[in-house]
Design a protein around this nucleic acid. Structure first.
Lengths: 185, 185
DNA sequence: AAGTGAAATTGATCATCGATCAATTAAAAA
DNA sequence: TTTTTAATTGATCGATGATCAATTTCACTT
């Protein structure tokens, strides 16, 4: 329950104001118990961020499950939709950096990879079978593209540039890249 | 000198371990003087990050000034090149979020906008005159695309996905998007 | 019921942080 | 020199991540 309450606290105040003490206080445990469970502050954050990934993955699956015609659009809009609806928790994923001495827990890695898998599947479904091999790399690249647009929208970079339609731009770029892939394999 | 030394400290230890006290100590002033100059921690970080933007802009200009044939490639590689050579300082730009009550200083905004201007100019130069109008939006979008790839490379997301050629992917996507723009206006 | 020991929990304690501001020092003006 | 203004200081505050000896809890044995 540390993770659930920690995730709520993260969603409430964001990475910069997040506090392990506050989490333990909220849940009625002492700070010592929290440290006995997670060992370090970083491991708590990792667990909370992995939970965000899981919720995000569910969000994408549900959106795709609604049976919309344009699944690529659905994917991009759900990517943005979750980030917008969970600003602080979503940003915390990228605000947190592992110390060099700490290795990423394999089980967290596996859970987070499920999100990429969804995108790979959809990219494959969109492209002809001859593209099957390169689809994974393209999918990772498109995730990075959409991520860049989503980040610029949420952190205000687009607003400072006078751009208000970050999601539309992301979708347009993805469409162009998918069409280029279709033509080249 | 607070900014120069603060920038060095940021480059050394990164956003998470950055300390205003350490900056003032390094430069031989008290913590009080630093706060008299910048008012808040956030304003110090903004000033340091704007310096990073300025160095980054100079880096891009110098790369373009070397007279390479493929200016788009030069731009993407210099984008990555600066980020790789200044990991901590570059990441700090996106690690820092303005508190909602704090407005972004206009002079910092102007300085940071120069980087976007460079990209807009190069995109315009690449596209036919008929694209002149949409070039600015496309340029912002391409910056977001490259940013997403650069971020995934530096924060280890690409590595976790088994992807080691983030920069090549970014350049490939940008090329596809530019060709699509050429065909559509 | 009483006793035993492992496991879980506690919170005082430490160093450090961002922030404040009365007091002090330095510089400029009269 | 005296007065006024500006710049600088660092002790102080509340809060944080982290530690760990002391305490409590609880299942198991006798």
């Amino acid at each position: 329950m540390f993770i659930v309450e920690g995730h709520k606290h993260m969603a409430d105040v964001g990475f910069a104001r997040f506090s392990a003490r506050e989490v333990s206080k909220r849940i009625g445990y002492s700070i010592g118990t929290l440290y006995n469970v997670f060992g370090t502050y970083d491991h708590l954050i990792i667990a909370i961020n992995t939970r965000t990934f899981t919720l995000w993955t569910d969000y994408l699956r549900e959106a795709l499950g609604r049976g919309e015609e344009d699944r690529i659009r659905t994917l991009v809009e759900a990517y943005f939709g979750f980030a917008r609806a969970n600003r602080h928790a979503w940003m915390a994923i990228y605000d947190h950096h592992l110390p060099p001495d700490l290795e990423f827990p394999p089980e967290d890695h596996a859970l987070r990879g499920l999100l990429t898998d969804i995108v790979v599947d959809e990219v494959r479904a969109f492209l002809p079978p001859s593209c099957h091999e390169e689809a994974a790399r393209l999918a990772r690249s498109l995730v990075a593209t959409v991520h860049g647009h989503c980040m610029f929208e949420l952190n205000g970079s687009f607003a400072l540039m006078g751009e208000s339609e970050g999601m539309a731009l992301a979708l347009a770029r993805v469409r162009e890249n998918l069409e280029a892939a279709r033509a080249n394999c």
